[in-house]
Amino acid sequence: MSIALSQPRVARRLPLPSRQTLPLWITLGVCLLMYVAAGLRYDNFFTPQVAVNLIGDNAFLGVTALGLTFVILAGGIDLSIGSAIGCTSVFIAAMIENHGWSAPLAIGVALLGGTIIGIVQGLLIAFFELQPFLVTLGGLFLYRGIGLLVSRESISLDNPMYVWLSGVEWHVRDGVDIPLAAMIFVVLLLLCVYVARWRPAGRAVYAVGGNEQSALLMGLPVRRVKIGVYAFSGFCAALAGVTATIYMSSGAALTGAGLELDAIAAVVIGGTLLSGGVGGPLGTLLGVLIFGIIQTAISFEGTLSSWWARIVVGLLLLAFILLQTLLQPRETHS
């Protein structure tokens, strides 16, 4: 009885840093530190529009990274997502502009296609116990090839619905407009947090990534979970492709080339262990924001080469992997 009574109080208390959540707290600290430092250094950095841009301009990195978060939580990896963005974006643009499809049809088929290719990759990984790295590397080439086959050039989208979509924004007040891409990212984020925290499917992902053997013994549908995460990741990548076409009013096969690596970096910096089982979508949001803050700061600085963004991200990534290794409990080393 007394246990049942004390339970809610424990839940309401602030989650203090534990071994599992410490990386997330450190990421949050780094993120805030960068934001404040950049704000102190540059004029007009602490404006709402900059904050909105951080979300909106990185929406397709964010959407992809959210899908990838679940794959990594389940102990896998998905390299196909970057090329999937390019492939879906050029596919949508080509179908609408050159083949007269309607925008909803093209978007629907693209989302479905991304999910199906995700399922196929999941099937290969779950049933034939193939290496996720290699299977999704195959996916990467497949997507890139299809995309370039559709068109080697960037295709402009003049379709009225697309023109309308690219103008959709929530006008909060003068100078603060939240674009559609940002809304897609935020809605997906909330959904991911909810599923990861409170849905059985989300908990099962953690269980499979934490220890596949015990998940199996617990009677969890391990294979279904694996297929599910790749399907979701494929869907997210296709959704990111849709977001990219809205953002740029055009589709190109090489959009998002190499983005899979940025996404992995964002997920890992966000405190998700590459070995699976620990982390979550909120951390990924922080990882994406760190990417965005670095890029924005460089453009505010105005004289630095934009390649510095990669150098900073690289160093952060190394620091975080080191940190994770130090924090990882001994028994999971194998």
Binding site: G56, Y247, S250, F300
Partner: peptide
């Protein structure tokens, strides 16, 4: 292209 759009957005914010 996405980097250019980002850059222009940040120029506007600046």
């Amino acid at each position: 292209q996405e980097n250019q759009i980002k850059a222009i957005r940040s120029f506007i914010a600046q």
